[in-house]
Write a protein that binds this DNA or RNA. Structure first.
Lengths: 154, 154
DNA sequence: GAGTTATTACTCGGATAATCGTTGTCCGAGTAGGATAGG
DNA sequence: CCTATCCTACTCGGACAACGATTATCCGAGTAATAACTC
């Protein structure tokens, strides 16, 4: 899985603490000494997915497009990684004995079904957690994280 | 995810139908027109994980090391992909404000915990399914698959 | 004919390249704010 | 002093390389069956 997912999730949390103020990719990257231009790439993907809004020019940057309770971990993962399954059935049964070209083995192959079952469980668990949940847990263990981060980003 | 996982799973199913007879990597590969040498590599990983046993020389090949009901999908996936999580926390919080070097953020970071929760659900679902389950489903929809495959492999 | 030995063909096993995706970098399009000049 | 225009600096956005992992290939080590040879 792409490392950008981790960056994107942390950036969403940090943006949530900025209360709607725009933050540039460079500042978000400086927080964790990340390559700014590459983080920018990930934030663009989030913007394209409707999770962030971006504004160019001076005083520009990124900000959350929705309340944190309406952004699931699955939303962020899908935005960065794309919607395809990790296990993508190549339908090798088509080349096997009794294989047919007019059958979609992604639906019928027992191996594919079993793997897909696990992936759905993974997705379900990701969809059940929001950025809001993450923030709540962080603030419980580290109550001054929001103000400290805000100080670094302004 | 590596394409070899799909090959390995299908190979396990096919080996199960061979009732303990050894089958060479070349024959298993020919079933689906796969590159034999590369499939051999995956089968080696399964052997190293104790899922298959390998015997060299004439009349050699691979065979299942355990009953199909004792081989889970997770066993096969882990053998091919390795045991590491897909989402591997880089602990970027160490570089952030208030980051400490003596803290294992893989355990404490809320983002990491949330992602890990989903991965555990994925693993749990994979561990709940065995090769035996897959075979049962195949034979229900395609009762003559075992004999047909056996004919191709002998 | 039976046992023993040398041979041979076959298989896995690991070391070695080629390809593709991820990671990382750079420069251009567009914008908003500020400076400047005119009224 | 106020307003309109121009300019400048700053930001995102997408195009362009570098690295690493996956994919693919090849040849050697070892084994078991076979064939030949001896008793």
């Amino acid at each position: 899985m792409s490392e950008g997912v981790e960056w994107a999730l942390h950036s969403c949390v940090n943006l949530a603490w900025m209360e709607g103020r725009a933050v540039t990719a460079a500042r978000l990257a400086a927080l964790y000494s990340l390559p700014a231009a590459y983080l920018n790439k990930q934030l663009q993907l989030l913007a394209k997915a409707g999770i962030l809004t971006s504004t160019p020019g001076p005083r520009g940057g990124f900000r959350l497009a929705r309340p944190t309770s309406a952004i699931t971990l699955l939303d962020v993962v899908t935005a960065i990684e794309g919607g395809e399954d990790a296990f993508r059935c190549q339908q090798i049964l088509r080349e096997g004995p009794g294989g047919r070209d007019d059958v979609d083995y992604r639906r019928t192959c027992a191996v594919s079904i079993g793997m897909r079952k696990a992936e759905l469980a993974w997705r379900r668990e990701l969809a059940a957690q929001t950025i809001s949940d993450v923030i709540a847990q962080v603030e419980r263990h580290n109550p001054d994280a929001p103000s400290r981060t805000r100080g670094q980003l302004m």
